[in-house]
């Protein structure tokens, strides 16, 4: 089990990437040292009562004594966070949640397939780094990243993934870059064309719910294990309030209890695709 810290962290950098996206870098010794791919942090964007609650952000990248979050400006809280200056202090709790299972280090596991929709690239980039770190000369594992974005200007991290040595495939809703269509269309194309033997791999996905549902269907159809990371509004982020639950198949399902609820923040955010009831 990983450890959790509440820290007042100094902002090292806060960079606008475009009108809607920014990357914020925090100085921290303990959070980057303990974070796993797929974990998140809870950020209090201001010391005032408005906005009141923390906001969850996936750990995007870690450095020595620093870590980044990659964020989209969607409301008041993210706008306030986007305006932080180097030297500002922000109260952060993390790392939180379970994180992805990276899988065994052995060679015969085939490529790792990462599927990112929108801001789903943020935690998946950190996962890709973690998987890449585990490469050894006799286990040169391929990482294939499928990225879906609204349009070219919303496409994030393509270069970063390539620099890590990942193969990147892009789909955009408006066709301004890559395939015009959904990222799951790309994924399906790939799975259909790739011979069985090479498909022995694992899928990791993060993005909007409809995309994750489609990934789950594909993973079932092609018989590949998939781990999906859910996004949800959260109050506490530590499993206390039960405000962010997801329906999963009950272990001893009966007619009275055909399902169970699990906490996205504590039992997740990463779930096995097969356990979610969509």
């Amino acid at each position: 089990m990983s450890r959790v810290f509440q820290e007042r962290l100094k902002v090292i950098a806060c960079t606008k990437l475009s009108e809607s996206y920014f990357r914020i870098t925090f100085a921290s010794r303990r959070i980057p040292a303990h974070a796993l791919g797929g974990q998140f942090v809870q950020v209090k964007v201001s010391d005032s009562a408005q906005p009141l609650l923390r906001r969850p952000f996936g750990v995007h990248r870690v450095g020595k004594n620093t870590f980044d979050c990659l964020c989209e400006i969607v409301g008041e809280a993210t706008r306030i966070l986007s305006e932080k200056k180097p030297g500002d202090f922000v109260d952060v709790i993390g790392p939180l949640g379970n994180g992805f299972d990276y899988g065994p280090r052995t060679k015969d596991q085939g490529p790792r397939i990462l599927v990112a929709g929108g801001m789903g690239v943020a935690p998946l980039f950190f996962l890709a780094e973690k998987i890449a770190e585990r490469r050894t000369p006799n286990a040169e594992r391929k990482i294939i990243v499928f990225i879906g974005a609204k349009s070219k200007k919303d496409l994030l991290c393509e270069k970063d993934f390539k620099q890590l040595g990942c193969e990147v495939k892009v789909a955009t809703d408006d066709g301004s870059k890559g395939l015009r269509g959904r990222v799951t269309d790309l994924l399906e194309q790939y799975l259909r064309r790739t011979p069985n033997a090479e498909r022995r791999s694992r899928i990791y996905a993060c993005g909007p719910k409809p995309m994750l549902k489609q990934v789950s269907l594909l993973s079932k159809h092609y018989n590949l294990p998939a781990q999906i990371s859910l996004e949800e509004h959260m109050a506490c982020g530590i499993g206390a309030c039960l405000g962010c639950v997801v329906k999963v198949r009950a272990q001893n399902a009966s007619r009275r209890t055909p399902f169970a609820y699990k906490r996205v923040c504590k039992d997740g955010p990463v779930f096995s695709a097969s356990e979610i009831i969509w």
């Binding site: 009141l52 509004h233 962010c244 609820y261």
Partner: peptide
């Protein structure tokens, strides 16, 4: 009790 359906919480001005 399994509890109520989602969404279960939302933020409001200075509250939830």
């Amino acid at each position: 009790r399994e509890g109520n359906p989602m969404p279960r919480t939302c933020e409001t001005p200075c509250g939830m």
